[in-house]
């Protein structure tokens, strides 16, 4: 029976050795020449992969009809006009930007107010997720909890399967068009993403200190509190800040569906729909400024905490 199985496996192993080489190191070569002759033909394998990718690329492009894009004529004159309005940074532009333009809803309709709202939403949501994800992340660590970690791990996978925008749409039917809806949607999804990254960080850490605490009679919680958390806290903060960077981008999108008082996204949708391209330009500038500032701030803070 064993011999039969070996014979069954042999052709596959021969193919493996031909393409990838004798990775198990069981063959022996009399001299360099015979070792050279036994070299793996990786380039054939790579060529097969490359041909497959190109084939799939062409097939899919054909199926989704990419080339029909050319059928639609591009109105350069119209596009150019929009472009010019977009970049007309005159008095009206800045009045709307800083919230002095009553026609655009005053202070609460302006760009500055709304990017601050967006920032507040994402910051609160990320902060909530940062703390709630800690216990789930620790529980999802296979090196600490073994196969019990699957419970938390699967939970985390489940809650991050639903994209934030979709979740926000569902939540609107529960909590209505309100900032809290955006916060819950963002925080919920972030817990799933951050928790997973926490577990990865924990699994890459030195477990010696925890062992030392175990040897002096500490229970699991004490081991984690004194042996693990001080080690991983800088990494956790770094993960949280990275998530803030991502959430700030998603947060602008959430305004699109939560409508009033949920940040800059609603302004974008409104001005796009009514063709107010100058205001759209101001909205875009606000979003870019917000993202750049948050990125700079978080990378500075990350350097400080992980030093």
């Amino acid at each position: 029976m064993k011999q039969f199985l070996e014979a069954l496996k042999k052709p596959f192993l021969d193919i493996h050795d031909y393409f990838v080489g004798d990775t198990r190191g069981i063959k022996s070569y009399a001299d360099p020449i015979s070792a050279y002759q036994a070299r793996p033909r990786r380039w054939i394998m790579n060529l097969i992969f490359l041909a497959t990718f190109i084939g799939v690329f062409i097939f899919m492009s054909w199926q989704i009809d990419i080339l029909s894009f050319g059928d639609r004529p591009i109105n350069w004159e119209y596009t150019g006009r929009i472009f010019r309005t977009f970049f007309t940074w005159d008095g009206d532009f800045w009045a709307y930007f800083f919230g002095f333009s009553e026609a655009d809803g005053g202070w609460t309709g302006g760009v500055l107010y709304n990017i601050l709202i967006t920032f507040a939403i994402t910051f609160i949501a990320t902060l909530i997720a940062f703390f709630i994800a800690i216990p789930f992340g620790i529980l999802a660590s296979h090196r600490i909890f073994g196969k019990w970690a699957y419970i938390s791990e699967i939970f985390l996978i489940l809650i991050r399967t639903i994209p934030e925008i979709l979740l926000a749409l569902f939540l609107i039917r529960l909590s209505g068009y309100h900032v809290l809806t955006a916060i819950i949607a963002l925080a919920f999804h972030s817990i799933g993403m951050i928790g997973k990254l926490y577990a990865d960080q924990i699994d890459g850490v030195d477990f010696g200190p925890m062992e030392a605490l175990e040897s002096s009679g500490g229970n699991k919680f004490q081991q984690i509190r004194y042996g693990l958390l001080p080690q991983v806290m800088p990494n956790f903060i770094s993960v949280g800040l990275y998530r803030l960077d991502i959430n700030i981008r998603t947060g602008t999108m959430l305004g699109l569906i939560i409508q009033q008082d949920a940040g800059i996204g609603w302004n974008v949708l409104l001005h796009f729909s009514y063709g107010k391209y100058q205001q759209l330009g101001a909205d875009t500038l606000g979003i870019i400024l917000l993202i750049v500032l948050v990125d700079l701030f978080s990378s500075f803070l990350r350097k400080v905490v992980t030093k």
Binding site: D22, T23, R24, G25, Y36
Partner: peptide, 17 residues
Amino acid sequence: ALQSLDKFGILDKAYVR
């Protein structure tokens, strides 16, 4: 390269990770 490996007696490991 294979000759170098042979000099140190690890020619058989040439294709091992």
